[in-house]
Structure formats: structure tokens, C-alpha cells
Design a protein around this nucleic acid. Sequence first.
DNA 1: TGACATTGGTTAGGTTCCTAATAATTAGGT
DNA 2: ACCTAATTATTAGGAACCTAACCAATGTCA
Lengths: 182, 182
Amino acid sequence: MRGTLTLLKGLPRYEVFLEEAKHFPDLDASACYTFLQLLRTGDELLALDEQVLASHGTRHGRFNLLMMLMKCTEGQAATPADLAEKTGVTRATISGLLDGLQKDGLIERRSDPQDRRLIRVHLTAAGQTFLDKIRPAYCRWFTSIVEPLSEQDRQQLVFLLEKIRTRLGELSRKGGGVERIA
Amino acid sequence: MRGTLTLLKGLPRYEVFLEEAKHFPDLDASACYTFLQLLRTGDELLALDEQVLASHGTRHGRFNLLMMLMKCTEGQAATPADLAEKTGVTRATISGLLDGLQKDGLIERRSDPQDRRLIRVHLTAAGQTFLDKIRPAYCRWFTSIVEPLSEQDRQQLVFLLEKIRTRLGELSRKGGGVERIA
DNA sequence: TGACATTGGTTAGGTTCCTAATAATTAGGT
DNA sequence: ACCTAATTATTAGGAACCTAACCAATGTCA
């Protein structure tokens, strides 16, 4: 959060492939263009999201974890393994994130008396306060992102992305999606 | 590249916000849903792309750098600063990436006799060979991603993403896009 | 009861990114 | 010419992720 106009990023390998597409007719130009646009949008969105979170003193990993903890208040408190599965990172990563959050007093680790292998992770009052402070601004930010899209645009976009995600799911179940298409 | 069915990832804070949207009517549910879908698709696409590159023995950073070097063959060879700007990472990161690529013999650093501060980065024959070997498979992979979309779908998707990216550009020029919207 | 695999959390070590500080070189102004 | 400012590449140190290896606690089953 220094430069503020960093993040022009944009054009890593994208344009290179686009140029390729002109010289090699066997390369499907529309596929190339669509993929690149998708990849680039995702990249820029993630980067800006990270930047927004950073401006509030947090990061992707920590924010996800806190949000997940807030959700899991009913019933037994979550264990690190639960959190790993739900946030999609490894248990080792959770350990590291919890260390940081605990040091900042946002979460607490309590060992489970029933099963002494388990750790129960609790959001502290400070953690809850922190989330309550951030969420309104975060909601405003993501609302402003999709603001230029009409209601119909949004439905269309969600529909198209759903198709892509379905495809991604198919491919990732195989060996990374490359060997499969021989 | 071990688990092959890793990458279920998916649902970090996304669902949590979706649930929020029900309880707080001031939270625009369609904006929320669209944003989350976009973020998640981007995340999954990037992750799978990384995995595909890894299966060919490379990674995002290195691949982008090599592709960029391949493009910049005409005229003076690129300097690390050029590459940093064009690939959208810092110069420090470029230094690290070049170290790795040089160790693997894919690039060469030559100092510029005119301006002795400058380093000229050259793709070696091995580097070119490496790229030539990877690109066809990479093209097949990304083609397969957008394959389920019709030509019209693709145009529509690119159009919508362009709108989003324009918005992202506007917001990132200000202070991360949050302070601006008071 | 005792071997044995399984499960949960952590640690160790590596990677890619970042920011900030550094040393070397060039450019500008007087 | 000389002092200062700007610019280049690099290093140092930190964060978030990963895989692999580890130990403790639990479950299983002869």
C-alpha cells in the first residue's frame, strides 16, 4: 500500500500469446483471447482484492480464516483441520495463519478435553470487533466492482463463469487437464 | 503435482458472504454473488494454470518471464527493469527469478558496455527449446478451458470482463478503491 | 493387553512474491 | 570538475503458501 498506482500489471504472457495467434492459424484465436481475458481479469481482481484487504490491515489468508470462524459459531468450535478443508489450504498453512492471528489476539486455541489431539479455534471479542469493522467497507468495495453491470449482465456473467468452472472441475479431476487431451 | 485432486479449494469466504446477504437486506445480493463467482473462478483458474505449468516443470513467474523474453528478441535485449515493468512484478522479484532461470541455463545475463548499470537478459538456446516444447501443450490446455463456450458466449464473456477490468482500472488508480467510495 | 495404522497439529525447509535498504553507476546543475 | 540526485540491480527480511517429516493421541484387532 505505498504506490497506490501500482497494479498496472496487466500484460505478462497474455499479449505474447495473442501475437502467436496471428502467426499460427492452428491456434484458435478466440479461445486464446477469451482465456487470456479470463486469466487477466482474475489476476487483477485478486491483486486488487488483496490490496483492499491490506489497506485494512489484513490479507487473504487471514481474512478467509476469520470469516470462516465467524460462520462456525454454532455447535463445536472448528479445529485447524476443519478450517484447512473449508478454506482450501493445507493444515500446515493453517498452523502458520493461526500463529499470526493468535499473536494479534484475534483468535484463541483451546485444547479439546474429549480428544486431546484436537485444538478448538475460537474467535476472540477482539477478532469479532475487527471483522465487524471491516465488513461494511469490504461490501462496499465489491459492490462497486460489479456496479457497472446491469442485472441482466450479472446473470449472464454468472452463467458463463459457471460453465467455465464446471469445465475446470472436470479437468482438475484428471491429471491437471493436459495429459488428458493427448 | 502430487494429489491431482487437490484444488477442491473453492469455498473460502465466499459462502459466508452469501449467507450474510440473506440477513442484511442492505447488502446487494446479486452484486455479492457476481463478485464471488468472479473471484472464485479467477482463483480456480489461476490455481489450475499453475498446476498445468508445474506439470511441465515451470511456474507462473518463470513462464511469464521466458515468454516475455521470447517476444523481446528484436532490438536491444531487455533489462531486468524492463522485464519487471512488463511482467508486472517488482525488480527484486525479477532478480530472484533470473537467478533460478540462469542456474537452469535458460537465460544469460550480459552486462551492457554502454551503461554499466544495465544488465541485458538473453534467452539461451536451451531456453528457446524449452519454450518451444511447452507451448503446444499449453495452447491445447487453455483451448480446452473455453471449449464449452460457443463463439457468441465467448464474445459476450470477453465483453463483460472488459467492463469489469475497466472498473478495476478506475478503482486501482485511486487508493485501492475503498476510501474513494466514502 | 499390545502392536499397528490412522488422525491431528506442528515444525522444517523451499518457493514466490513483497518492501526497504544497499552499492554501483550515470546525469544534472552550478 | 564536483556535489547531489536519480536510476540499476541486488540483497535482506518477511508473509503466505506448499510438501515432507514429526510426535502425540486415538482407534483397531489379534
